[in-house]
Design a protein around this nucleic acid. Structure first.
Lengths: 297, 297
DNA sequence: ACCGAACCGAAAATATCTTTCAGGAGTGAC
DNA sequence: GTCACTCCTGAAAGATATTTTCGGTTCGGT
């Protein structure tokens, strides 16, 4: 590993080089070991490092002193810091494709990274004007119907649960027929919200169309801003689409993205209706408390 | 903003938050000091830190143990590493509290940031050994039952949907009675998985206990590693807990965290069963194709 | 070969960390 | 209200790690 700039460890490596001439042979061995593998040495005790370098504890301490630390303990602390820096500097080297034979630890890292990426993209791409309009509509709505199927259905339920918690009237529909049946009841001042990644899920578009024709405010959360669902949407909130790989179906990132949008909607509505939302949240928390056994430790 | 890991020390701060509930008062004081000023604490000996926090050496060591280190010495080393990272990486400590009068654009930014943070913390705190074991159990299971209520119920359904997609037999239960009724059917080689943030949701613990006693492999996904639910869990997967504010209930970040764990489980299982999973995924995609209208441009 | 100086490591001395144990605060039952 | 019980807590003993001491050894110079 070539050091190009004065990388974090540069200062220590440089010190070793500078001081090497004034060192005795055994001290040089210690200094070399320390400069060569800070992380490894940080894990060793004086005795361990002495054995590793074939010297004695006394020599190790002497070396530490020469390098400018009060004793080995402090050198070790500094070494740990260095190791940590090296570690973090190496981080961005991950490819995000998940292979069949990736160890589980890599899977965790890569998935977390991808989802973070998805969140950042979604946040960057969200139209705050449309979002604000949607929030206003939801906050004022007499009732809200949410349509979603499959993975998007869960997001729909999530939104519904949240809205109910702050005292609004919301319902999630995953049955297309019931959804349409209910959509007929909607009128101006109500909100209908369709969640579909592809934007082409007929079962979700249909109830939105009905609601649209009945005069309700219609909102679409979709990854395709020009897809069929937007025909019947007064407001369109765009989720980001990330590359989809064999082991990571699109449903996964679209869900993350959709949930962020839903959270934004919820918080926005909670802000607008703070007077009623705050007590309602507190109340629902209270009501659930007895369902939890007390002992947590 | 492309932080892969959380802010420097995010992982430790997260661990403190996660474990704080299972800590005693004096341990919390120690943990707080450590999380608040890693650099400063790294400079102190056990005795020093004990004095600073007004506790005893024993308590400091106990805290170090709880945080996952073999003893104080190692905690101190880790602290030094953290301090070094903080030094190099400028502190991106933007306030993430969401105020009632925040404009909607800020809400989006802050929510996205918090969720990214949650993901990073979760990834850092996940025990890959336990995770690997859970994956193995799931991949080999005759059948899998998943328990979750409320927001966690949606996560349970998400996992179930995914597992079904790759040809495994899985079922999500949100009705406590039915869950117990079904749990009785489980036996060795089956998997029961409970999802609860608090770890104290009786309705979820009960079926897990039954499954545990019937000899099934039991897994808990919880934010409290020492909570009641873990009594009956062969494997515990810990989700991270982030600060909870009035407008951002804990349910929000726990959901994000739980979903990441679930995704990891899914991808892990898909890897292990690749031969059957890949065709199954493709098939389910095909089967749904006709449900989407063609014109999406 | 002899002397002196500096190097080196074994072992003692010290500091630091870990464990044990008994007192005490808080909690729930009666 | 009081009693019994559990679990937290810190003081001190015990174990490790670090630092210092000190005598033996090596090496260069004469």
């Amino acid at each position: 590993m070539k050091e190009i700039f004065g990388s974090p460890g540069g200062s220590l490596a440089a010190k070793v080089r500078t001081l090497a001439p004034s060192m005795t042979r055994s001290m040089q061995r210690v200094a070399e070991a320390v400069a060569g593998d800070p992380a490894g040495c940080a894990a060793l005790t004086v005795t361990g490092l002495a054995e590793l370098t074939g010297t004695s504890e006394a020599t190790v301490v002497r070396t530490a002193r020469l390098l400018g630390y009060p004793g080995y303990r402090d050198l070790r602390l500094a070494l740990a810091g260095l190791a940590a820096q090296q570690q973090s500097g190496r981080a961005p080297a991950i490819t995000t494709d998940i292979a069949v034979d990736d160890p589980i630890a890599d899977v965790v890292t890569k998935l977390a990274y991808e989802e973070q990426q998805t969140l950042a993209d979604t946040a960057a791409g969200l139209d705050t004007v449309q979002l604000g309009a949607a929030v206003t509509a939801l906050a004022a709505a007499r009732r809200t119907d949410v349509y979603g199927i499959g993975a998007s259905g869960l997001v729909a339920q999530d939104l519904t649960q949240k809205l109910l918690r702050i005292g609004l009237i919301a319902h999630a529909h995953s049955d297309p027929h019931l959804a349409v049946t209910n959509a007929v009841q909607l009128r101006s001042g109500d909100v209908a919200l369709a969640i579909t990644h592809s934007g082409s899920t007929g079962d979700v578009i249909e109830p939105l169309r009905v609601a649209f024709e009945r005069g309700a405010t219609t909102v679409a959360i979709t990854g395709r801003p020009n897809s069929p669902v937007t025909q019947y949407a007064d407001l369109v909130l765009t989720t980001s689409t990330s590359r989809e790989t064999e082991l990571r179906p699109a449903a996964m990132s679209s869900r993350t993205s959709q949930l962020l949008v839903v959270d934004c909607l919820f918080v926005g509505v909670a802000q607008r209706t703070y007077e009623t939302a705050a007590p309602a949240l507190a109340a629902s928390y209270e009501a659930l408390a007895h369902r939890h056994r007390s002992g947590s430790r």
